[in-house]
């Protein structure tokens, strides 16, 4: 799995951090998404797919 984020589109909702905290973080200054791991291990894939689906600005892309 390969994860990419469009930080310009990010609205700092933080839903990804609540859903998959091992893969996503937020910048301290403005809450913009920080990708911690662009190739997460298999046990995190479900959470990452859910994070991409619930992202309110649709800025997370997952390719498998």
């Amino acid at each position: 799995m390969k994860v990419t984020v469009d930080s310009e589109k990010c609205c700092a909702g933080g839903n990804c951090v609540m859903t998959a905290p091992d893969v996503f973080d937020q910048r301290d200054s403005d809450g913009t998404v920080v990708l911690l791991n662009d190739s997460p291990p298999a046990e995190l894939h479900d959470a990452v797919r859910e994070a991409a689906d619930v992202c309110p600005s649709a800025c997370i892309t997952v390719s498998e």
Partner: peptide
């Protein structure tokens, strides 16, 4: 207010 990350932590 302008503190997204910290707000989630307070959740």
């Amino acid at each position: 207010w302008n503190m997204p990350k910290q707000t989630i932590q307070r959740r």
